[in-house]
Simulated scan of single mutants.
Amino acid sequence: VSSEGGGHNPSLVGVLRNPVFGAYFAGSSISNIGTWFQNVAQSILIYRMTGSTFLVGVVNFAMFVGLVAFAPWAGPMADSHDRRRLLLLTQAVALCIAASLWLVVVADAENTAFIVGAALMMGTAMAFSVPALQSLVPALVPEGHLSRALSLNAVSFNLARAVGPVLGAMVVAGLGFAWAFFLNAASFLVFVVALLVIRPRGGSGERPGSRRLRDTATMLRQDRRLLGLLAVVALASLTADPINTIGPEFATRIYGYQDTFTGWMIGAFGVGAVAGALVVSRVGLPSVRFVFSMLITGGSGMVLFGVSEGPVFGLIGLGIAGFGWLAAVMLATTAIHILVADDHRGRVMAFWSIAFMGVRPVSSLLSGLLTAVGGPRLAALLLALPAVLGALGLVMVR
């Protein structure tokens, strides 16, 4: 399948009809749903085994710390190697890790150390896949379709975030943890098949004379626009992450529900995020005021969730938080792609992956510690501050 084609300002459906991007979108969406099966399952499993929200935070820390640790290598690899082949390798590794979790649970041999170790290895595979994944998208569609394709790429992740946790919680409650891990392994296989089918426009990598990561870091320091856009992504993600760590305790301690209600909470956040991506899908270079409003929206939603006494207002707050979070991230990400040359793209997206997911180790540990000290409400309210501070910072440097 080839990605040739043209057209300008297409509809979202029109972009999906592109056979290359359509195959990629389907495989990526299924894989993302499977990943949320594992995220929810491992958080609930650790919480049931230990009763410790801090250890849930440790698992999430392990899942994302690799994005920071391996960024110096992941970005350059995305620029100097075939991105599709790099993704094939990382997805195959992730499949093996998910399958190992399935086997351990089937054998009734699960323990905290193994689950943390598996999360660490999965995060390492993710560290090398994210820059390649983000850098590959522009090669799957004609240039005039880029904004829409990036929005759909975000929709893929967040539609999975809306559906995956709910389905994952249902699988855990109805079939058990082993099935959740097995289905995640199967989802990676689906994405591998999709990657084998597609042929990106103009190839997808092996660029001679690629720049060093240090050169890209210098460029970012000199370009306040790009640095500010990456800061928006990081601050928005700091505010968004706590729900993944504090969810089980918030569900049981505040709402009086079972810990599997975490899936519905993360799902509500995902529904809002999908709506946010669709709303900003036609925006190119955003105004400072627009990004400011989305950061404030995300922070306000987390505050509403943090003060909620019952699940109705809590789910509404999480939906608002998800809307503001992804809208702000999408506006910043689209602008980054527009402003960055392709020979810097992999390295810039390595910095983007640090901003988007690399802040989560810090956020996960903070969420766990704050919950241990002052309860889940304190964690939710204090970690709403980064989005508000980011919005104020945008106004000050405008």
Rank of each mutant, 00 (worst) to 15 (best):
T262A: 11
T262V: 14
I246S: 02
F250H: 11
R253N: 08
D241Q: 13
M265T: 00
W264A: 01
V271N: 03
G272A: 07
R253H: 11
I243G: 03
G267H: 10
M265V: 01
G270F: 08
P248K: 06
P248V: 01
W264P: 01
F269A: 00
V274P: 12
F269I: 00
G267W: 14
G270Y: 10
F269W: 05
I243Q: 07
P248A: 05
N244V: 14
T252E: 15
T260K: 07
W264M: 06
T245L: 08
Y257D: 00
F269V: 00
A251L: 06
T252R: 14
N244I: 14
W264C: 02
D241A: 13
A275T: 04
D241W: 12
A275P: 07
G267E: 04
V274D: 01
G276N: 09
V274C: 06
V279N: 06
I254V: 14
F269N: 02
G256K: 07
G270H: 07
T245M: 14
A273V: 08
M265A: 03
G272Q: 05
P248M: 09
F261W: 10
I254R: 14
A268K: 03
Q258S: 07
V274T: 07
F261T: 01
D259T: 05
T245F: 11
D259N: 05
A251Y: 05
A268E: 00
F269L: 08
G276V: 13
G267K: 12
G270S: 05
F250K: 11
G263T: 01
A277G: 08
T260A: 13
F269R: 02
Y257P: 07
A275D: 01
V274A: 04
F261Q: 02
N244G: 12
G267M: 12
Q258L: 09
A268Q: 01
W264G: 00
